[in-house]
Design a protein around this nucleic acid. Structure first.
Lengths: 232, 232
DNA sequence: CTAAAAAAGTGAAATATTACATTTTTTATA
DNA sequence: TATAAAAAATGTAATATTTCACTTTTTTAG
């Protein structure tokens, strides 16, 4: 799914970096951290809910979340996975205050709230800062288009290979990792049925490309996986 | 594919509107029109090429274009269709100067060039303007996510119904229109094979939902088409 | 106007994907 | 720890989609 180096997560990291760097002052930065109360979210808990107006962003300092969308008929789709540290909800700030999708903890999380109005005030008084945010949002747009393309062009094989590489490289940062998504959720990420995920993972396993034992996954032949993700 | 009211085309219209309205001065607006030479593009001609650095945007005053992406293996995908008046290339301005996709005339077009550097200068000196552009880019992001969702969730039936409604309502603004896309291009827009497009159009025709005679299409039962696009 | 090229259309076979029914395994919890 | 509930796994049938080989129609260029 994510075929470029830039993605929501990296963008959020950049946002974090830029907020705390040369573009705004220390005081402005401090203002953003509302009342500095640490919030705790349990696995499965919704941090931001699709369709609701948001007055705050969440800056998670610990844990992992999914960006999930539910359509009219109740079908779910996972747009991406993000891990701390990350600012969540950034995609909509300057458009309107309605969340396009939900953000749900897939493991226990900790974080702070950031007031959107304060963020906007800082942006209005600081053109350079606004330009940086603009770059950021454009980057997200680009990523989203690449997602779109990947989904349209590739079959399940290619998508699963792509997502395995993404999880390994960007999320878990290791060839060996323990998935904290169910097969159903994995399927919602790929955009296919859960049976298809199970079969494809087993096929990759049988071909010696990966090692699968329940949620424990080892990427053995990332070269081959890469080829599959490219050919689609 | 386009399931919300906002889309690339409308966003571009807004950009046009906002550039020429309260956010920048008359002089600034005039500056944007480089040297005011009208360019003509024939059907099939590429206005902006995927992978190339762009120093200019194109403001088309006449004609229709497709946003198309070509992947490594030569497969094509049409992201959207836009018609004049529209500013093209806006999605990438503030990110980097490389085009993510190509923009190709699907009928003869006329337009002007807009210098990106000049646009940036105006943005830097005008926070309100930048904020507006930010809103615009966020809107595009949102649309792109909805596209992504539609593609992931719906089967060909639903996607074709959706695209037919989009073409009718947004592009041709009539229940009766003459398509200026080949069946192959239509398939690249839907994200399926051309045979699938042909069969589905005939099926819709046989069911009395639309009337198809070559490139000439009449939407007869938009209610039913809407239902198909929703159920997917 | 006509030949050549491109696009549209067709049907059947091959492939990919989903849906279903069911069993096994894992996880949560009383 | 026993039990219930949830998730994972599996094989098969049904469905959706693509691919291919081909014919017909339309468009284009000389």
């Amino acid at each position: 799914m994510i075929s470029t180096d830039e993605n929501l997560i990296n963008s959020d990291k950049n946002l974090l970096k830029l907020i705390s760097s040369q573009y705004i002052t220390e005081e402005e930065f401090e203002q953003l951290y509302d009342n500095s109360v640490i919030l705790r979210f349990n696995k499965g808990e919704v941090l931001l809910k699709q369709g609701m107006k948001t007055t705050h962003l969440v800056f998670i300092t610990k844990g992992m979340v999914k960006f999930n969308y539910q359509d009219g008929s109740g079908k779910n789709l996972i747009l991406t996975i993000a891990k701390a540290p990350s600012i969540l909800g950034g995609a909509n700030i300057f458009y309107d205050n309605t969340n396009i999708f939900s953000i749900t903890a897939i493991e226990d999380c900790e974080g702070y709230l950031i007031d959107v109005e304060k963020l906007k005030t800082i942006a209005l008084n600081n053109s350079n800062f606004t330009m940086k945010v603009l770059e950021l949002v454009s980057g997200m747009f680009k990523t989203s288009v690449f997602n779109f393309i990947s989904l349209a062009h590739k079959q399940v094989n290619g998508r699963i290979a792509e997502i395995l590489l993404y999880l390994s490289r960007t999320i878990y940062e290791s060839e060996t990792f323990t998935l904290n998504l169910s097969r159903q959720e994995f399927a919602e990420f790929v955009g296919c049925s859960k049976e298809n995920v199970i079969n494809t993972l087993r096929k990759f396993h049988n071909e010696g490309i990966i090692e699968v034992a329940g949620k424990h996954i080892i990427i053995i032949d990332s070269e081959k996986l890469n080829k599959i993700s490219k050919v689609g």
